[in-house]
């Protein structure tokens, strides 16, 4: 039983929790903004895509941590 594998699961789980909540809030706010001002939809969509990409990058950093934990720890 390699504790590194358990650590990898916990790390990625918590990170994706934060990313999921953040992206949900971002999408909700941008949908509300588009609803208020449909003419500005491309600008708002660009900001949403940019913010989503940045937040997903943080989630991917946790994936890197998980991979390092899986492959570089030995029981």
């Amino acid at each position: 039983m390699n504790l590194g594998w358990l650590a990898a699961g916990i790390a990625v789980g918590f990170a994706v929790l934060g990313v999921g909540i953040g992206l949900g809030i971002a999408t909700a706010k941008s949908s509300e903004a588009i609803g208020r001002n449909p003419d500005a939809a491309p600008l708002i969509r660009n900001n949403l895509i940019l913010g989503a990409g940045l937040a997903e990058g943080l989630g991917v950093l946790s994936l890197v941590v998980g991979i390092l934990l899986i492959f570089l720890t030995h029981p």
Partner: peptide
């Protein structure tokens, strides 16, 4: 680091 890891992590994942 973030530019590298974001692109690599998404494609490799």
């Amino acid at each position: 680091l973030t530019l590298t890891a974001r692109l690599w992590g998404n494609v490799f994942g």
